[in-house]
Amino acid sequence: MIKEHAKHTAILLFANSAEEDSRAKKLHVDSGLLESLNQHALKVIEATDLPHFHFSEKEQVGHSFGERFANAIQAIFDKGYLNVIAIGNDSPHLGKRHIQKAATLLLQKKVVLGPSLDGGFYLFGITREHFDAHGLESLPWQTSFLYQDTLAYFDTVACQTATLETLSDIDTVKDIKRLTNYIKSLGSKWMILFSKLLSQRMQFSQRMEIAPEILVQQTPYNKGSPFCFA
């Protein structure tokens, strides 16, 4: 089945570099720590044996998030693939099984969404026949309505959708704190990473003489999941 998927399906890792994430998300941590998230995503992708392409800020083309995302998907279709599975780098619970299930559902001509707790989604799978760049660009990116409005959009164009399990992603310090409650399912390496992130965030707060609670209230940056206040 994997060979059949590989003939038609490619994975798009739509994720900025660790340096850009560190700057844009305003987490104020060593970018080397954020690189662990990129490496985790790549490790999961490589385990699927599916072809993949990484579009960081260097490869992305367009002004808005929706335009850049749609252009990246179109670029993969232009390579001859019939299906694209797009993921980010900020869902530590994302595993090979999620991608493989999405690949199977795409062969059934379904649009696949992996919803995240904040109202966005961590995975988006689409066939070439269901892809419309303008429709994708028009979705309410970076709002808490993204997942529901995406379902509604594909319903209006008579595309059948399939939903994976809901996962959490990392866009804010609050997300990191919440994920530490799931350390048994994530593993010790993530606890070490999150502890460093939170420790560095606290040090930054103290240097700026601002309470961490105030910093958490800043509007975070993210790459597709909605903006939300921590």
Rank of each mutant, 00 (worst) to 15 (best):
I2C: 04
E4D: 12
E4I: 13
A6L: 03
A6G: 09
K7M: 06
A10G: 10
I11P: 07
I11H: 09
I11R: 08
L13N: 10
L13I: 11
F14Q: 10
F14L: 14
A15M: 09
N16A: 15
E19Y: 08
E19I: 12
E20M: 15
S22F: 07
R23H: 06
A24K: 11
A24E: 09
K25G: 10
K26I: 07
H28L: 08
D30P: 07
D30F: 02
S31K: 10
L34T: 08
L34W: 07
L34N: 06
S36H: 14
L37M: 13
L37S: 05
N38M: 06
A41P: 01
A41N: 03
I45R: 06
E46N: 09
A47P: 03
A47G: 04
A47W: 06
D49C: 08
K58V: 07
K58T: 07
E59W: 08
Q60Y: 05
V61G: 01
H63M: 08
H63G: 07
F65S: 03
G66Y: 03
G66C: 02
E67G: 00
E67Q: 07
I76Q: 01
F77P: 05
F77E: 03
F77L: 06
D78H: 07
G80Q: 12
Y81H: 08
Y81I: 02
N83A: 09
N83R: 14
A86H: 08
A86C: 12
S91L: 06
L94F: 01
L94G: 00
K96T: 04
R97C: 07
H98M: 00
A102F: 01
L106T: 00
L107F: 06
L107H: 07
Q108F: 05
K109D: 11
K109F: 03
V111S: 04
V111I: 07
V111K: 04
G114T: 05
S116V: 04
S116W: 02
G119T: 01
G120F: 00
F121D: 00
L123K: 00
I126P: 02
T127H: 04
R128H: 10
R128P: 00
E129R: 05
E129V: 08
H130W: 09
H130E: 06
F131T: 02
H134C: 12
L136I: 14
P140S: 11
P140Q: 12
P140G: 11
Q142D: 08
S144P: 04
F145D: 13
Y147H: 11
Y147R: 06
D149P: 03
L151A: 09
A152G: 05
F154G: 02
F154R: 02
T156L: 10
A158D: 13
A158L: 10
Q160E: 15
T161H: 09
D169W: 01
D171Q: 11
V173Y: 01
K174W: 09
I176Y: 00
I176M: 01
R178S: 11
L179H: 01
T180R: 10
L186N: 12
L186W: 08
G187F: 11
L193R: 09
L193M: 12
L193A: 05
F194R: 06
Q200R: 06
R201F: 15
R201N: 14
M202W: 10
Q203F: 12
F204G: 12
S205L: 06
Q206I: 14
Q206C: 13
R207D: 13
R207F: 10
M208N: 13
A211I: 13
L215E: 15
T219I: 14
P220Y: 13
P220W: 13
S225E: 11
P226T: 12
C228A: 13
C228G: 14
F229I: 15
